[in-house]
């Protein structure tokens, strides 16, 4: 199927925005329940960064689409199959180790991705990427440090974080999903060569997991579907909560 540049750009930006929104939402579920007060503050701050990123990318997506939809319309008023986030970010928080492992895998990817996107010939996109990259570096430092602490902490924490890695590993392959949207934008020097991020991602993940004494799972099967709108069962419940006000009180301003 032929896809035009405008549609491709809209789809591309939406994927980034959806990743940020859904992960930000998940992290925000920790609010008030963190394992230590300092982490409550850190997690809330990270959630806030992701909501901010989502807002910037949705604003731009809305502009690219040019159909008078707003950032909020895109965030709150689409149906489940229209969300294009990866499966990884919609996975439930689980315990703190699950949240950290999910975050770590994503942060390593996001840093590499934004470093490339910051070079985009689309200046607006490059600008948002550059701003987001600053935050992402902090997020990555935070999640890497916790990976190491938990992995090389106590026997209990090691077992727990190893299990988190084993469970979430199957969702990491999808981070490198690309299709004709990416090909077209790469050709236009707007997009990112996502497949090329896989090796540096693996290298960095191995480094931290090595220091954390965590083993990389042997099983190779990777789940996918989020980028084409085929999600896990978790997303429906997340959206039910996220969209509650907009669905219950259609068209009102808050």
């Amino acid at each position: 199927m032929e896809i035009n540049k405008q549609d491709a750009l809209f789809e591309f930006v939406l994927r980034i925005a959806d990743d940020s929104l859904i992960l930000g939402h998940r992290i925000s579920e920790w609010c008030g329940h963190g394992p230590i007060l300092e982490e409550d503050i850190a997690l809330t701050n990270i959630a806030l960064d992701f909501v901010g990123q989502a807002t910037n990318f949705y604003d731009y997506a809305a502009k690219v689409e040019g159909k008078c939809r707003t950032a909020d319309d895109l965030a709150f008023l689409r149906f489940e199959r229209e969300y294009k986030n990866v499966l990884l970010v919609e996975q439930p928080n689980g315990h703190f180790g699950d949240t950290i492992a999910r975050q770590f895998f994503f942060d390593v990817f996001r840093k590499l991705f934004f470093e490339e996107l910051a070079k985009s010939t689309d200046e607006e996109l490059a600008g948002i990427a550059e701003k987001s990259l600053l935050e992402t570096k902090y997020h990555l430092r935070h999640s890497s440090e916790w990976m190491i602490r938990l992995g090389d902490g106590t026997e209990e924490s090691h077992a727990k974080i190893q299990e988190s890695v084993d469970t979430l590993w199957r969702y990491t392959g999808e981070l490198f999903f690309s299709n004709e949207v990416d090909a077209l934008l790469l050709n236009e020097k707007i997009g990112v060569d996502i497949a090329a991020l896989k090796r540096p991602w693996e290298k960095q993940v191995r480094e931290i997991l090595g220091e954390a004494t965590i083993e990389i799972p042997a099983h190779a099967w990777q789940q996918a579907g989020g980028r084409t709108g085929v999600h896990s069962e978790h997303l429906g419940y997340l959206l039910t909560e996220l969209q509650y006000m907009q669905r219950a009180y259609p068209g009102m301003e808050w």
């Binding site: 939402h25 809330t44 806030l48 909501v51 949705y58 950032a71 909020d72 808050w254």
Partner: peptide
């Protein structure tokens, strides 16, 4: 209400407040 805030701006402001 953080997970049910009605729009992006309110969600961000509420998170900032709780933080």
């Amino acid at each position: 209400w953080v997970t049910r805030a009605p729009n992006l701006r309110r969600k961000a402001v509420l998170l900032a407040k709780v933080q």
